[in-house]
Design a protein around this nucleic acid. Structure first.
Length: 885
RNA sequence: GGGCUCGUGGUCUAGCUGGUCAUGACGCGGCCCUUACAAGGCCGAGGUCGGUGGUUCGAACCCGCCCGAGCCCA
């Protein structure tokens, strides 16, 4: 076999070679800025389509989720670019955070603690650059129409400035506060973390039954037993709870208990949050064992007893156990309880504990000073904002709704970490007064920079303590629309303004369904508070890519499919065709056979293009009058354009894909092209062929950008034309041209053709075998030539009258949709009457009498069975009768 | 434990504002080299629409319960 020839120029020669074609176009699209967005603040926002893209963590590898998510966005971007003009499809790199911190330490063999934060961040930026470049290359290999001139990195100073501006704005609006409150805490990382960063893990442990004595003389009993997995928390015990319906233990309510070993006394309180099924039904409440302890602490105004410090070491409250780790203290306390007779039982269990997802350390709940964004008082507004957006699919709105309705805590935004974007805040060393940075100074790092004042405006003190916390990563990720629109503080005008106001609100927020409650929700909160506007017109929720067996891909299962491997075997366009197969929002499996279907389509498109090229000149004259068959094709094409446009506007990519494939493959290739082969010198057909072919390329362009570009450039552009103008992707989306045709006749003709094909197939005749004489009874006016030609019919007769047949009633079809409401429960009797033949058909009156009722003509249809008694063989189709002799 | 979503031939799916032969693709079997494409074309087989109870003249579709899967939150 010959080596495939390197094709540097687009051409229709030979077979389609995606491996050379696809990379060539990817390169040229980027090099020649085909997808560049030019901002014009004066532009009408309605003519700009802007996508707020998700910023992937670039130090990680590209996975199928990236590929799928961006491909969906690209369908929308490419369609909108053709349909409605300017499109912004930006790209964001998320490398602000612990992942890049670790990466930098590893890469440079350093510890971040040895550097000033600002210096270390500079090192991070340098290290991340390589990863960004690599990620960019991989993304460009997906063929998405991203504008690579419009990118942002969450680690860059511009983004730091916006993040800090956001903090200042919310602070000034009174939407943020610093408060001592319980927070989820990782004792290994020594930071507060959010709920999102926790995960469940199954761990071995022990249940310990511990006896508590009652205090006082006249007590209902001497002692009771509680069960706990965390005996080291008994020095932190602040109360004991009993369920109000727990009759067996009701006598304890109102009494006072003494804590063994430590001796302090706590009240016994009734509360319905007690789980009566667990252990003795009596539970201790500590500072803090779990989230329920926090609820109780808040609900019953309990005191704090902090026995565990930020590094999971016992405090002085733990008396003799001070300085021990929680684990050592647990063992020591159990031993001592046992020695003193308080330990009544102990057995091994396995249970779920909540651990920090990053280091797998079990979390603690600690009281510390943290920054919060107030949210609970604006829940209604955020819900309303969600309602104002269009949701694709609509059903996903309920997730957002339930999330907001279930919110119980304000948003904790401070993290005790080294890497990240610092809070632009200092505190007065004397009075703890909060001093925030001046907007024009941002970005600042309080660890390196001085506060904007010389003395505390509150007490006059001149010592300042820098805040060393950094923002939660979502505090920055939730600003992507503002980053993309260039939101900033205008010091002269003393107001916030956007560099590209025409983009905001954005047209589309794409989202995985798993992070609706984080990314989308937090973005709505932030942008709404800053601008008073809902940041998105619409949100498109994408599902997850599962493995061949419909299971979630995960490293531990080892069932991950890497995009690199897929793209090594299949053309990008075939992968895109697969990506378009699922309804937006549904999870769907990776299936290799679907990729083969895409490959077949590319081959079909290529081969059909070659055929069209041999049948018609590239730019034929438009004839004054089109013939019926050609007008029919173009009228059908008009219908397809109309439907596809509506589907793509509604993000119904799967429907659009199937509609277009069916029309292209079955109607155009199987029906029309076969007919056109016999009409190659006909100017009407030549014109229709070219019009349809150009239109098909345009309609396919959002789905199959590489193949359509290759064919378009090979056939319809002049050499050396500027790609920005000549690319198929910058053309106008097709609109219906108003072709009128006898669609019924076209449809009937196609039925006749397929009936003849079936006849040949069933009689094992070649499809190009001659048929001597064929008669047709049915509306095929204008299509006689086409039928004769494509089916090789020597003599075609159109019958004026129905052929000689003896007819017999085969069945009577009822129109149940009107019959049902009209006759209700009589329908059963009517059915039975027809079934048994017990009815009377009055042809003169046009009515059917059955079961004592009279049905008008519009309620039923009589189907006849025809028996042909003439010469030859009769074939019936939906709307025609065909006779072969 | 709570909420949301999903369950349709061997596989992936359409249909789900109720109307009676349930759509298409892949796979499978048979036939056909026809003025692009045999990696094509034509024909065919294959379904208790997860189970169950109900509403209705009529349920894949609406409602209840159960089973299974996924996501989110406890």
């Amino acid at each position: 076999m010959d080596a495939p020839e390197q094709t540097d120029e687009p051409s229709l020669e030979g077979d389609y070679e995606p491996e050379t074609v696809e990379s060539r176009w990817q390169q040229r699209w980027v090099d020649e800025d085909v997808y560049a967005y030019e901002s014009d603040p004066e532009r009408d926002p309605n003519t700009v389509y802007a996508i707020d893209t998700p910023p992937p963590t670039v130090s990680g590898s590209l996975h199928m989720g990236h590929l799928y998510g961006h491909t969906l966005q690209d369908f929308a971007a490419r369609f909108q670019r053709m349909h409605d003009g300017a499109v912004l499809f930006p790209f964001g790199y998320d490398d602000n955070g612990i992942a890049s911190e670790r990466l930098t330490e590893k890469e440079l063999d350093i510890r971040h603690q040895d550097y000033e934060r600002r210096e270390f961040q500079q090192l991070c930026r340098e290290v991340c650059q390589e990863y960004e470049a690599e990620f960019t290359e991989k993304m460009q290999g997906l063929g998405c129409s991203i504008d690579w001139n419009n990118t942002y990195k969450t680690i860059e100073p511009r983004v730091q400035r916006i993040s800090q501006l956001s903090f200042l704005d919310l602070y000034e609006k009174g939407r943020e506060y610093r408060k001592k409150a319980p927070a989820i805490w990782c004792p290994d990382c020594e930071t507060a973390i959010s709920q999102v960063e926790m995960e469940d893990d199954e761990r071995g442990s022990h249940f310990n039954d511990i006896a508590f004595e009652l205090v006082g003389d006249d007590t209902p009993r001497d002692e009771f037993v509680i069960s706990t997995t965390r005996p080291e928390l008994i020095p932190a015990c602040v109360s004991v709870f009993v369920h109000p319906d727990d009759e067996a233990n009701q006598d304890l309510v109102g009494e006072t208990a003494r804590i063994p070993i430590f001796g302090h006394e706590v009240p016994i309180i009734a509360d319905e949050r007690v789980d009566m099924e667990k252990g003795s039904g009596i539970v201790m409440c500590c500072t803090f064992g779990d989230q329920k302890d926090i609820e109780w602490y808040q609900a019953h105004d309990l005191p704090l007893r902090v026995a565990i410090d930020e590094s999971a070491t016992m405090t002085d409250l733990a008396g003799d156990y001070e300085g021990l780790s929680t684990e050592d203290a647990r063992e020591a306390i159990v031993e001592d309880l046992d020695a003193e007779g308080y330990l009544r039982d102990r057995w091994e269990i396995s249970h779920t504990v909540q651990v920090h997802e990053r280091c797998e350390t079990p979390v603690e709940f600690r009281v510390s000073k943290q920054w919060y964004v107030e949210m609970l008082d604006h829940k209604d507004e955020y819900l309303e904002a969600g309602r104002e957006m269009d949701w694709y699919p609509e059903k996903m709105f309920t997730r957002y709704k339930h999330w907001i309705e279930g919110l119980e805590w304000d948003w904790l935004i401070s993290r005790q970490r080294d890497s990240g974007i610092p809070f632009p805040v200092w505190y007065c060393g004397d009075c703890d007064h909060e001093i925030v940075a001046a907007k024009e100074d941002l970005p600042v790092d309080p660890l390196s920079d001085d506060p904007p004042v010389d003395s505390c405006p509150e007490c006059g003190g001149d010592e300042f303590v820098p805040e060393d916390d950094v923002f939660d990563t979502w505090a920055t990720s939730s600003l992507t629309p503002l980053i993309n629109a260039g939101w900033d503080w205008d010091a002269d005008a003393e107001t916030f303004r956007m560099e590209k106001p025409e983009l905001y609100p954005f047209d589309l927020r794409p989202q995985g369904h798993d992070i609706i409650s984080f990314w989308l929700f937090h973005t709505v909160v932030k942008c709404y508070e800053h601008t008073g506007e809902v940041p998105f017109d619409a949100t498109m929720i994408n599902g997850h890519v599962l493995d061949e067996n419909r299971e979630k891909m995960s490293k531990s299962k080892g069932n991950i499919v890497a995009p690199d491997e897929v793209l090594a075997d299949y053309p990008v366009d075939a992968v895109r065709f697969w990506a378009a197969s699922a309804a937006v929002g549904d999870d769907f499996p990776y299936q290799e056979k679907d990729l083969r279907a895409g490959e077949k389509l590319l081959r079909k498109l290529w081969n059909a293009s070659k055929l069209v090229d041999t049948l018609a000149p590239r730019d034929p004259e438009k004839p004054d009058e089109l013939e019926a068959i050609d007008r029919w094709l173009l009228a059908e094409l008009d219908d397809a354009i109309e439907e596809l446009t509506a589907q793509l506007e509604d993000y119904e990519f799967a429907k659009a894909r199937d509609r277009l494939r069916t029309f292209f493959w079955n109607t155009f290739c199987d029906d029309y092209l076969e007919i056109a082969k016999g009409r190659e010198d006909n100017p009407s057909t030549q014109y229709a062929l070219r019009t349809a072919h150009r239109t098909f390329l345009e309609l396919w362009a959002p789905f199959l950008p590489h193949a359509t570009e290759e064919i378009w450039q090979a056939v319809y552009t002049d050499d050396g034309a500027d790609l920005e103008d000549s690319s198929i992707h910058t053309r106008d989306w097709p609109t219906p041209q108003g072709y009128e045709a006898d669609l019924e006749a076209g449809e009937t003709a196609m039925e006749v053709i397929s009936a003849l094909r079936r006849y040949k197939s069933e009689n094992q005749l070649p499809l190009n075998a001659d048929l001597e004489s064929v008669s047709v009874y049915g509306p095929i006016e204008g299509f006689e030539g086409a039928i004769r030609n494509v089916m090789h019919v020597q003599e075609l007769t159109v019958l004026e009258d129905e052929p000689e047949v003896t007819t017999e009633i085969a069945s009577i079809d009822l129109d149940y949709s009107t019959l049902g409401p009209k006759f209700g429960s009589k329908v059963g009797d009517i059915d039975a009457g027809i079934e048994s033949g017990d009815y009377e058909l009055d042809r003169d009156a046009g009515v059917l009498r059955v079961a004592g009722e009279e049905l008008a003509a519009d309620l039923f249809e009589v189907e006849y069975e025809r028996t042909y008694s003439g010469e030859g063989e009769m074939i019936e189709t939906e709307s025609a009768v065909v006779i072969l002799e």
